[in-house]
């Protein structure tokens, strides 16, 4: 439930989300040269496809958010990548909405940046050791932060949404488990097979 539909959130929250996303986008676009656009685009597509994977958790199954991993692999480019993915999901698949694009992008992109900043730096400093642990932490943190931000967007929009926001937060629990477990192994794999994807400073 990372995609909030249109018509739910209040105008101040929508405006805040749009402004924050626009601000992040300005920085991210300035840091992205034309030379790196093909790489960013192919990885954006890869993350889009990867989120189609459905991971079983107990009796139900979840689709991964992958924002923690995106922050690690893409750095600032995660912001436009997430926006592009969300535009496609809302326009072609009906997930999310139009006016909430700003809020939805912010809720996924800010945690991605945080994970990239915290764990990316740690990973580069120790030369890719402890990738399994760092990947697990990064995946878990990305989802938890996103869950908190989604519930906060709901709760701050109207105090009447408070119970709903709490339930939404609870639904992030199984996703956190699956995401942490899978991204840990993904990061360990990448560090072993193609360390240049992560360890190159950007």
């Amino acid at each position: 439930m990372a995609h909030i539909p249109d018509g739910v959130l209040s105008a101040p929250i929508l405006t805040t989300g749009a402004l924050v996303t626009a601000g992040l986008l300005v920085v991210a676009i300035r840091r992205l040269d034309y030379e790196r656009i093909p790489q960013a685009a192919v990885l954006t597509a890869a993350f889009f496809v990867a989120s189609l994977l459905s991971v079983p958790v107990g009796p139900s199954s979840v689709h991964l958010l992958l924002n923690g991993l995106m922050g690690l692999v893409l750095g600032w480019t995660a912001v436009p990548a997430i926006l592009v993915a969300l535009i496609m999901q809302s326009v072609f698949f009906g997930y999310g909405g139009l006016l909430v694009l700003g809020v939805n992008s912010m809720n996924i992109a800010l945690p991605a940046l945080a994970c990239g900043l915290i764990f990316g730096a740690a990973l580069r400093r120790n030369g890719g050791r402890r990738a399994l642990l760092l990947g697990t932490l990064s995946g878990g943190l990305g989802v938890i932060l996103s869950g908190l931000m989604v519930s906060a967007s709901l709760a701050l929009s109207s105090s009447d949404y408070l119970p709903a926001a709490q339930v939404v937060l609870a639904t992030y629990l199984p996703l956190t488990v699956a995401e942490a477990a899978v991204t840990g192994f993904t990061l360990a794999f990448i560090v072993k097979v193609a360390p240049e994807l992560i360890l190159e400073p950007r």
């Binding site: 093909p38 790489q39 685009a41 192919v42 990885l43 597509a45 890869a46 496809v49 990867a50 994977l53 459905s54 991971v55 079983p56 958790v57 107990g58 991964l64 992958l66 991993l69 692999v73 699956a178 477990a181 899978v182 991204t183 840990g184 192994f185 993904t186 990061l187 360990a188 794999f189 990448i190 097979v193 193609a194 240049e196 994807l197």
Partner: peptide, 26 residues
């Protein structure tokens, strides 16, 4: 797929493989 370590590792490697091949393609 199930809720076990084997699944998580296999899926983790699947995503890793997808990303690594994407990087080469890019």
């Amino acid at each position: 797929a199930g809720s076990n370590r084997h699944t998580w590792r296999s899926f983790g490697w699947l995503l890793g493989m997808l990303l690594v091949r994407s990087l080469e393609r890019s």
